[in-house]
Each structure stands twice: as C-alpha cells, then as structure tokens.
Amino acid sequence: MNRLTLIRLGVIVAFFGLLEILCRTGVISPFTMIPPSEMAIELWALIVSGEVARGMRQTLGNVAVACILAITVGFAVGAGVHALPRLRRALDPFLTTYYAVPFFVFYPLLVFIFGMNNFPMIMIGFLFAVVAMIINTLNGLDKIPRVYRKVARMHHMGRAKTALLIELPYAIPNLFTGVKLAVAYSFIGVIAAEFILAPGGLGYAISFAYDNFDNETMYALMLFILVLVTIINMSLHAYEQRLLRRQGR
C-alpha cells in the first residue's frame, strides 16, 4: 500500500474516530446521531436478521434495471445523434442543461400515473442516468482523432469495420466513464425515489425508520448504503482509471 492510500485511510479513520468521541462524550446528542460503532453493531444485527437483504434485493434490482436501460439507450441515442451533426447541435443546449432540472419533482407525477410500484423508481433512475451516458458517448466519439479514419482506409476497411474495430475500441474508456456515471446516477435516482415515496427498498427503510424515531436502524442502514455504494463506485472508478492509463490519457 502506498503512502497516499495510508494517509487517506488515516483521514477517514480520524473522521469516524472524531464522530465516535463527539457522540460518546455527549457533544452530539444520541437523539441526533448514534456513535459509528453502534451503527456498525446495529447493522450487523440487521444483516443477520435478513432485513437488509430484503431491502437490498429490491433496491439493487431496480438499480440494475435502470442502469442497464440507461446504458443501452444512452449509447444507442449517443451514437445516433453523433452521426447527425445538425440534430446534435440543436440538442446540445438541452443535454448540457438537463441536470439543472431537479428531476425528482417528476417522481410524484410518475407514482401518480403508474401507481406505487417499481416502475416509477426505475424510470427516475433511468431518466437520471441516461443523459450522462448520452453525453459521454458523444464525448468519446468526438475524441477519436481523424487520422484513425485515414488508417482505416489505408487498410481497405469499410464503414462498419471501421466503427467496430477502430472507433469503438478507441472510445471504450470514455464510454466506460458513461457506464460509471450511469451506475452512480441510477443509485442516486432509485434511492432518492424510495426515500420520497415507495413500497419498499433501502431508501424507504431509512425514511420509515426516520418517521418512527428509530435512530439505530436508520443510521445502520445509512452506513450500509454509503459503504455499499462507495465500494461499487470506487471499483468502477479504479477500473476506469486503469483503462484511461492504458490508453495513455
């Protein structure tokens, strides 16, 4: 392990240590926050009892559907729009301001239309993730240097072969950035939706615990989500960095 990682670990441990001390000494009241050690103990109990697994199945299922949809649709739309420069120029201002629209205001509407089931949550996750994939697909295809198309022609390659054997491999690291963001955004979308209004899932469980003043469960689940999502996001991030390094970018 290198020095940077050690320092980083130290910073994180110090942060939780400080929280622990503040909670234990009563500077932070137990009605506001419970000590991190108790969160962990409580979380273990929840995991053993199978309560976490139930919520997690639903949440992960929705996230998976939302992000697979977002990745495939986002890639297809991105590649299509890239081929039509005029449409692309007209869409650009909408793509760049898309995330300024606070999406979750649509969620109540979706629940209203489709009922209280998984579909509205998947929709929110999808809507939140798909544009990141579109933007990164366009970005990746933009970055392919013109000289590669010349090389392809020198090798007597047609349009389809050029796309498959040269353009796609070149764009992969950027496409993967889109995938990484799509996963993170699907999580944000689905969990936020569960939190606001939902029949189940981890976000709902936190919101439910909050409404019932059950701080132990609430903080245990919070810890769980934050750790789970951080592990997933950071693994994708590490892989992305490896791809980028291999491409020398």
Binding site: L4, I7, R8, V11, I12, T32, M33, L181, A184, Y185, F187, I188, I191, A192, F195, G203, I206, S207, A209, Y210, M218, L221, M222, I225, L226, V229, T230, N233, M234, H237
Partner: peptide
C-alpha cells in the same frame, strides 16, 4: 489525498443523509 474522497462523495446518494 482528497481527490478520490471527493469523487466518492460526489457520486454518493446524499439523500440518505437527509434525516441526519
């Protein structure tokens, strides 16, 4: 030291912290 931590925080579903 901070960069990866910031990246991690950026993509966290911060809604879970709202009760806090």
């Amino acid at each position: 030291v901070a960069e990866p931590i910031l990246v991690a925080l950026y993509s966290l579903p911060k809604i879970t912290l709202y009760p806090l």
